[in-house]
Design a protein around this nucleic acid. Sequence first.
RNA 1: GGGCGGUUAGCUCAGCGGGAGAGCACCUCCCUGACACGGAGGGGGUCACAGGUUCAAAUCCUGUACCGCCCACCA
Length: 871
Amino acid sequence: MSQAHARPELPPQYAPGDSESTLYERWVERGYFTPDEKPSDKPTYSIVIPPPNVTGQLHMGHAFQHTLMDALTRRRRMQGYDTLWLPGMDHAGIATQNVVERELANEGKSRHDLGREAFVDRVWQWKEEYGGRILGQMRRLGDGVDWTRERFTMDAGLSRAVQTIFKRLYDDNLIYRAERIINWCPRCLTALSDIEVDHKDDEGELVSIRYGDGDGAVVVATTRVETMLGDTAVAVHPDDERYRHLIGTEVQLPLTDRRIPIVGDDHVDPEFGTGAVKVTPAHDPNDFDIGQRHGLPMVVMLDERGVVTAHGPFEGLDRFEARPAVTAALRELGRIVDEKRPYVHAVGHCSRCDTVVEPRLSLQWFVRVGPLAKAAGDAVRDGRTTIHPPELAKRYFDWVDDMHDWCISRQLWWGHRIPVWYGTDGETRVLGPDETPPTGDAWAQDEDVLDTWFSSALWPISTLGWPEETGDLARFYPTSVLLTGYDIIFFWVARMMMFDLYARDGLQPFDVVALTGLIRDGRGRKMSKSAGNAVDPLDWIEQYGADALRFTLARGANPGTDVPITEDWVKGSRNFINKVWNGVRFGLANGATTGEIPPRDALALADRWILSRLNTTVDEVNALYEDYQFAKAADSLFHFAWDEVFDWYVELAKTSFKKSDDQAAATRVVLAHVLDVLLRLLHPIIPFVTEQLWTALTGGESIVIADWPEASDQRLDAEAEVQIGLLQVVVTEVRRYRAEQGLRPRQKVDAALVTADSVLTEYSTELGALTDLTVQSRDDIPHGWAVVDIRGSRIALDLSGAIDVPAERARLTKDLEAAQKAKSVAETKLGNPAFTGKAPEQVISTMRARLTAAEADIARITGQLEALPSG
RNA sequence: GGGCGGUUAGCUCAGCGGGAGAGCACCUCCCUGACACGGAGGGGGUCACAGGUUCAAAUCCUGUACCGCCCACCA
């Protein structure tokens, strides 16, 4: 409804400046982002944010994902959902501990100088002081999160969740402690899980060493010469003719006083190297397995820093120093058969600090992944959770279906301490949050903390209050969407699925997993600080505004696809926003006022046309948003706004304003309506400008709480679309002709532009304005033709060619058939009791929606077919 | 070693069975009362290659080449 309100003067260029921050704080103060206090009968929509690290700063990847999550939640909020976007941060175990340790190092201290308790206090202190910078940066971006529900993975409540699930998993025999070969970072001095290890190709050398002498000698090949100090056997394939006779014998291990057996083991590939393998059970996972099978002793020859222990002259050498040293010693003994044969193989590196990972025998806690991973796979297989885009589901299955047990203990101080106490009598007690730990000297708590991802895995439930059965948990779980990068499927998505399905008895943590690509630079390279190609999103926000950055990111967001981004794109978005700004400015200056749209009969063709086009755009954009097709939704809005509203409708409106009062008034209302709807459609992506323009245009309280536009088929107007299409073709043809003739723009030329086609007669004023011709009417021109007569030179425009009627009819017919087919498929399904009885409600309602959509399509296309000019 | 994706205009990409497209860049004209962060017009591609299916293939199938990503305990 129109209402009188002060209309601010808008400057000719949009300047984001401080207005963005002001608007944001106003939204927060008014509580727009906080769901109602009490649950209502509104449908709910919830997203938990992938918690950024406390140490983190907003980078382009955050800006990207946050823009999309914000767009999803803003739209749902406008649609009237009970909407929650929950923010928070992750304590980020190793990362944060490293930051504080570095700080201590600058003071010449180590964490051991402080002791555990003081160190942890220090980290908390750091967190209070410097942590969470990213939260302020999120405000700058415009993230509509509910700050009253902000969470941190080390909050008391979340820690309770961690301890609860640990205990439950332990009691269910899904957590166990064992001595295993694990990935060890000799710099971080902690165990790592498999996925915290990055494999990189390394140019190693394969060295062949002869063990033993004479007939009993055997030659082994290795890239890790130094580990021979820890060998406790040589393995060959049991069927290998070359070596079969040696199985059961022993050889002298060079440089040591030990004799080691030769064993037969299927694991050995006779084709590789010499077909004989040195076996180092304490320093290689395969060898560990062989050792287990043959009951071999385990000789540890490296300490936790990768330094050789107690092996004569090599003691105290780093593993990389030991390699040439041991090689030299063997060479001296004449034991090297072949060396320096280049051999490229994958070597594990710590994903945190890039140090070469050392497989190490150690006592750690593990999650027995089997049943949990199975359930995680099943939830996607049976459709409780949908992965989008579907291609990426394969990655998820590959991982989940073949997952190793997860090493969860970390030899760090910052994190959730393992809730296990050991008695001197050998007793082990695993305690839940409400149990009192044993006291006294006879008891000691496990020194280790849990992998950061252990608590992250609980994020969707712990942030909502689990293990308590809170109102939020009932109201917002399962969450609607998890939106995150495909790079984090294993680290996070799969583990949330495992833990949360387990904790909630099979209820999935999210209905949909929407996976985004990664942000790259203009040349497709990953953005990274070290490569020097990373751009701070705040720089661009500063320069072009948050909206411009957001629009750019949304426009690049094709599902699961990486997004190259350059400053030129951001400039382009800024230009688009400025275009919208000026479009609304035009409307305001010309008295555009929202109000009741006059009935169709009272509207000019152009008004009917733009309303029809608007309707189609609303439909299209809604479908695209529903399908997480942000790039296409943004693109659709971009082209509708620029090509149709601003390039054509605004120009036509200029003429309309000079016509009769009634027509001018109608156009003012239609223009205001089109701008209003356009702004609302754009708001999820570019919240700031749209708020500013929309309140100026409508006098409403805030676009944040405005209604979301829905299409109405009554606005579809095939006749108007055809007619205005004709007009556009004529105008374009004439303009091209003018350009070819070298006529200067705005040079008025007397010309005849005539046809019997009604649109051209009715729109002679507009035609004159758009082509800078003086249009005359003549009745000697046949139907379907227009003639342009400029200074004695004439061209005839074949308007029947302007719209290829047969082709258009064929296209529409095809669309109609498709719609009819979709309708009949949906009808069949819905008429089948087996389907309606057994399929989940969600699937059934989707099918109903599909039926409705198909019926609407049929009606629309039929109308368009009827409106097509005959012949 | 396994798996996945890509190869379309100078660049970045969309299209995935009947018309080769978008943004940016480029050329020409224009500071017109919304906007030069703009307007009007224009040029530019044997859709990687080779076969096949089809009335019809950038689009489906097979193979080849190159590029990228993920996974991986063959020394």
